[in-house]
Design a protein around this nucleic acid. Structure first.
Lengths: 194, 194
DNA sequence: TTGCTCCTGGCACTGGGTGCCACTAGCCTC
DNA sequence: GAGGCTAGTGGCACCCAGTGCCAGGAGCAA
């Protein structure tokens, strides 16, 4: 029940400390002890909040996946599958302007730090499962069949590419990049020569 | 210079031991010491052959990437980009029947063991870089732009989905799955309803 | 033989992650 | 208010991946 004067709870304090330290000194150069100490808790408690050092940058990712799943289940069945998935991704990643700096910080870490890049695959797998199940419902197939897997993996590829392009150019809008990527995917890459 | 009676060199012995042990007991339950001991070398030497425990299952992956890069550079510029990439993937993954069991074992580990799944992202990034550079050459764009990234990430998604589907059903042919996945991608997912 | 280089193994150390236990704060019940 | 329950916390010890350092030994050249 201990809280700081700011009223921020321990979990958020850990996340903020992790983002700040990893950004300024690099993921590998910061020990879990340092993050814990900065957040004002013990190393042991740190690993109770987040099962690995890498998880500290992801915030409440389970809620993220949960929202995506609910959106897909509630989606209009008459709409094209890719359009549904694109809309769900855009909705789930529709941050307000105030949250964009933190999102940038988080995504920059995830996309550039090798250890976090590796770890991200485990988080993405949860998203892929949810999307593949949605496609399987739409096509009356096994979620493990080629098409559901492929749609899940390539729409996620679209999302991460959009994030990367958005990070690379400060002036662009994340939603625009997402839609551009999904348009290329749905249209069989019209911008490609040949 | 020490060799066993079989004439197999130490590096291959390590790889075989790793695949065998990881398959039978799981990646996390096997220590690097055990792999080293089974291969007849010290733990210290193990980490000179392979920088991480996970790398031991990948064999000579740098050569793999090198071959892919050479194929893409030598490709017919008039051909559609996706067709070129598909052909290069198929060529690089064109194993003889004798090698298929080991390939299956390797891919099953990489796609099912969480630690290896995470690690794979680092290896895939090398492939993505090569493919993105190829696309950038074809479109006169920056490799970091949205389209090159997207094509690289989604063709890799196609390849891994094909691998997964091939693993799930023993009777299918890897090349067929690859072509099916790329056809869906190039055609804007014609098999999808809507 | 001496000297050089390369490969190897042993040793000690850092750091992530975990199991176990003891302590404390709150809270409920009698 | 006393006793007992539970949840959160921290400390400690341990395992294991990975690394730097150094000492040996094999092979080769002069």
């Amino acid at each position: 029940m201990t809280q700081t004067a700011t009223g921020e709870d321990a979990r958020s304090r850990v996340e903020r400390a992790a983002l700040e330290l990893f950004t300024s000194r690099g993921f590998d150069a910061v020990t879990a002890d340092e993050v814990a100490e900065t957040a004002g808790i013990s190393r042991r408690t740190f690993f109770r909040y987040y099962p690995t050092k890498a998880d500290a940058v992801w915030g409440d990712f389970a809620a993220h996946v949960g929202r995506l799943e609910r959106l897909l289940r509630a989606a209009d069945g008459a709409r094209p599958v890719l359009a549904t998935i694109c809309a769900a991704y855009a909705e789930v990643n529709g941050y307000g302007d105030a949250d964009l700096p933190v999102l940038r910080q988080r995504m920059r870490l995830i996309l550039t730090e090798p250890a976090l890049q590796a770890h991200s695959q485990l988080r993405y797998a949860e998203i892929d499962r949810v999307v593949a199940e949605h496609v399987a419902r739409c096509t009356a197939e096994d979620p493990a069949a080629l098409l559901p897997r492929l749609v899940a993996a390539s729409t996620r590829a679209a999302a991460t590419s959009a994030f990367a392009a958005w990070l690379a150019d400060e002036r662009t809008d994340l939603g625009d990049q997402l839609r551009r990527a999904f348009d290329e995917l749905a249209g069989g890459f019209p911008s490609l020569p040949g």
